[in-house]
Design a protein around this nucleic acid. Structure first.
Lengths: 70, 70
DNA sequence: ATGTGACTCGTAGTCCGTA
DNA sequence: TTACGGACTACGAGTCACA
């Protein structure tokens, strides 16, 4: 991602907020979501255009509904 | 996509439902979302793991919030 | 009006590191 | 613990011809 669209920024911020609320690290979230450590960081920094399947994985790992991420 | 995960099926069905409710064709939706006609079809049939940016485009074209798609 | 196979190309996503 | 980099592979984006 060269230029981060608003939607990705919002999503990343939301993930970061919910992750911190749960008091876990990016690494721990990555583990729970079965995604790579560096990838979670990229999502929070809005550097990647995440796919639906991974959105679901993260929602489950954060124990929230997908709709709550928006 | 070889084997369609549940989340993609649900998403596709939802898009199709909302599109029909608006009484527009895949072609019309594609035009409004600035996406290709066949691509919309693939999403409704859960053949693609759609990314967040395109989810947003479709939500806008359907005039609903992203959260309403879940 | 929609489904499908085939195709190119860019990027999603992983893995190795360093600071 | 996180940011960021380079290199890599897999797969999503996007289009077409035809059924």
């Amino acid at each position: 991602m060269d230029l981060a669209p608003e939607i990705l920024k919002k999503f990343g911020e939301k993930v970061r907020m919910l992750r911190k609320r749960k008091g876990i690290s990016q690494e721990e979230l990555a583990f729970r979501a079965d995604l790579h450590r560096t990838y979670i960081g990229m999502i929070e920094r809005a550097e990647k255009n995440i796919t639906l399947i991974n959105i679901e994985k993260i929602a489950k790992a954060l124990e929230v509904k997908i709709a709550e991420l928006f």
